[in-house]
Design a protein around this nucleic acid. Structure first.
Lengths: 341, 341
DNA sequence: CACTGCATCCAAAGCGCTTTGGAGTGATTC
DNA sequence: GAATCACTCCAAAGCGCTTTGGATGCAGTG
């Protein structure tokens, strides 16, 4: 069932049927209802490709996920972010397109996306420090919103981010106020912008309290469980081990907890953990009393907002870049306690 | 840069340029190389929508993720599955399209997808017992591959699945051979086909060994960490608590482990855990020695295979349905030991 | 009554590509 | 020397939609 068939069935021109369906004024209300009724009954759906060709709009948003060769893993927060974004797209009638792009040929990939015209805009995932994609996309002229920011990029661009620096400063400060002096940081990969900012926040808190920054207490890796376990195990073996750990991911925190248990130590009493918590749906941080004291910010919410930001950017093309900084809340759970004496 | 401009630049017809680019024989090799060179230099990419309109193929695959209202969470294995599928698509030049579909209006959603013509085929996620989508899609005539199977559906359809029943029978048998008699099952939601099969496998092993099936030892919920924790905590409070637990997800197993620790018990010595392990990239089950004894099958691999299955189904339309049953391997880790006496 | 203006409708062009049905050329065959 | 053939190339139609630029009919106006 296509437009032509539908219009023949209705004894109307394609023009009129098209206008009736798309809500244009130059069509009699009676005919419009007649058209809508027939379209519904005959289960007519306009062909997306044809519509896109004619209008120049794709009614789709692209999500580009960089996949590096060394660590080709999909970030665990990705699923929740997508779920959030998907809600917004569904409401607006947009499709969601995923591309996994090897990070060595990103430039080509974005050119491709643009030239092939499959999407009206894209969400940029996993920005790194001084991310070249931002200049690239600005040049290409394809609307985009970055999930996160990119330090050292001086262009104006749209982004939605969590206040990573503020959150980690606050979390570290919280531990310091509990009397901790040896505080470790299990960070994500620090060429990633979010991780870089988190370290800055951590360092700021230490400096504000005249505590020294010890490179032996700082790790930076892909945020897996096993990483949390290994790093914690190693550090607990130090002569002067940390009494508290700041984690960049709840998964890493789980690994850290495992190492603490295995060492025969007790969480909160012997070693405290504070972690960033993306509020992943399948890794809920406890219920009434959180398992981990955490800096929480829902990545699903961020996805929803990012999508809406992009859609509004697309609908009003010459709009100035939009930005949005989300604050993470500090929630007290059962993984922190005063420093052991 | 479109075909017309490119052909004018080359002083050739669009026909010839198109043929040169698409590898048709009726074009001189010299002109072909000339065309390819120019296309490369001028960064020409055919417009996907136009190409799709002309060929009737979308060069895209749809992934439909059911989102129920009660538990609107994205399955954590989804990210890895997608990553695997994405690899196959990228190689074949296909795009990947995601749709989140509320499960009450699935029928419409699939009709929509078909009529709008945005994809050439779809991957069906999260099949339930007697899943109506299979009949629906067969009727619609859109190629599809199911990730999993659907018990009670008598149509022939393409699927890729893990031998869930066999895996859980084997895992349970393994525990029985270690001397365990009180074995709990922390399953996923049992209207989901995979969970239903897993329970069957678990029950079969018990029956084969003349052990009774105790409903108090069987739980069925969304496979979160907190679920594993709560269920385990509750069961450890029984007069006759389980000495071993079979988990449907490593995340749930982590929750179970937390409850075991909290009860002052030791994993493997006091309580054993065996879990299904989808080999998620960010939840690696240890390294040389796995944390959990597990039934392992890479969901990422499944994604890659599912995608290839679908692509071959599309390229040879009248192909008979393909099926593929993956076996999970039993890997021995540090979470199981002989039953305490 | 001729004219204007509004409300409805339509034919046809165009979006960027593929593909059908030739057309032109030179070489080969008898 | 005419006929045949393989090799290259092209013009134009068509995919299913939107949108421009009218055409038509009818009420209102002076």
């Amino acid at each position: 069932m296509n437009l032509k068939q539908l219009s023949e069935y209705l004894n109307l021109s394609q023009t009129t049927v098209s206008r009736a369906l798309n809500g244009y004024p130059e069509v009699n209300e009676d005919t419009r209802t007649r058209v809508l009724k027939a379209a519904h009954e005959l289960n007519y759906r306009p062909n997306t490709r044809a519509k896109g060709l004619a209008t120049g709009r794709a009614l789709a948003i692209g999500h580009v996920i960089p996949v590096s060769n060394q660590h080709e893993m999909v970030n665990p927060v990705f699923g929740d972010f997508i779920a959030g974004a998907g809600e917004s797209y569904a409401k607006a009638g947009y499709d969601m397109m995923l591309s996994l792009v090897a990070d060595q040929d990103e430039a080509r990939a974005y050119q491709d996306i643009r030239a092939r015209g499959t999407v009206d805009g894209i969400i940029v995932h996993g920005p790194v420090i001084n991310d070249v994609r931002i200049a690239l996309l600005s040049g290409i002229g394809l609307p985009f919103v970055v999930h996160g920011r990119s330090t050292d990029v001086n262009l104006a661009y749209s982004w939605i981010d969590v206040n990573n620096r503020g959150a980690f400063e606050r979390g570290t400060q919280f531990l310091i106020e509990l009397g901790h002096r040896r505080i470790a940081l299990l960070n994500g990969l620090e060429h990633m912008d979010f991780a870089f900012r988190r370290r800055k926040g951590y360092e700021t808190a230490l400096q504000n309290n005249a505590l020294s920054i010890d490179p032996d207490l700082m790790r930076s890796e892909e945020m897996t469980e096993i990483y949390g376990y290994r790093a914690t195990k190693a550090m607990l073996g130090y002569e002067d081990p940390p009494t508290a750990i700041v984690c960049s991911s709840i998964i890493t925190a789980i690994g850290a907890r495992r190492a603490i248990h295995e060492a025969g130590l007790t969480l909160a009493r012997d070693v405290s953990i504070i972690t960033f918590d993306d509020a992943l749906s399948y890794l809920e941080n406890g219920d009434d009393v959180p398992i981990f004291t955490a800096l929480r910010s829902s990545v699903r919410y961020a996805g929803r907002e990012a999508a809406e930001m992009l859609l509004s950017l697309i609908s009003v093309p010459m709009n100035a870049p939009k930005t949005r900084l989300l604050e993470a809340e500090l929630i007290i759970g059962r993984s922190t306690g005063p420093a052991p004496t």
